[in-house]
């Protein structure tokens, strides 16, 4: 597990976190591998994990009848994905699918949630990081909403 601790400690997402917290988090983690086209999680399932993508690429998508799967965003090496375990009702809102062989560290959300409730300091530190992540995602989503490439313009 030493490599797990090392990866997590060096990950920018956890940068500046106290060692004891990192130790705790490491305890919640495990190495996982997803083959191409394997789902990390499915819409509606219980959300129990979040993932540090060590290598590879996944796609967040949803399925629209008559249109098929629509990809919303991609996550790749170095990204963090999944926060539905943090917010009731703890269900995934989208599908996540590996588009290539993807290695990740999966952290047990339930375990973390319990710890965060107990240890507000850790809770705050993690929430702060997730808030930043959400803000980034929100900005990116807004940009997508702008339809910035000007698809609807007219002369």
């Amino acid at each position: 597990m030493e490599s797990l601790a090392k990866v997590l400690k060096e990950h920018p997402f956890l940068e500046g976190l106290e060692q004891r917290h990192i130790d705790f988090i490491t305890g919640c983690g495990s190495n996982v591998v997803f083959k191409k086209d394997e789902f990390l999680f499915r819409e509606g399932d219980e959300a129990n994990h979040f993932y540090f993508i060590r290598h590879g690429k996944i796609i967040i998508e949803t399925y629209i009848p008559q249109k098929g799967p629509i990809a919303i965003q991609t996550r790749e090496t170095g990204d963090v994905t999944g926060w539905s375990w943090l917010i009731p009702p703890y269900r995934w809102h989208f599908d996540a699918r590996a588009v290539e062989l993807t290695r990740a560290i999966a952290l047990d959300g339930k375990c973390l949630r319990g710890k965060m409730d107990e240890d507000h300091e850790l809770g705050y530190e993690l929430m702060r990081r997730f808030a930043r992540l959400m803000a980034q995602r929100l900005e990116a989503t807004r940009m997508q909403l702008f339809d910035v490439y000007g698809g609807n313009t007219k002369e």
Binding site: I70, A71, T74, M143, Q144, Y149
Partner: peptide, 19 residues
């Protein structure tokens, strides 16, 4: 290359270019 909406057999990036 990235697209706002990955449709069909798209395997590449999805998300705005600023990402």
């Amino acid at each position: 290359i990235t697209v706002d909406r990955g449709t069909g057999s798209w395997r590449g990036n999805v998300g705005v270019v600023t990402n």
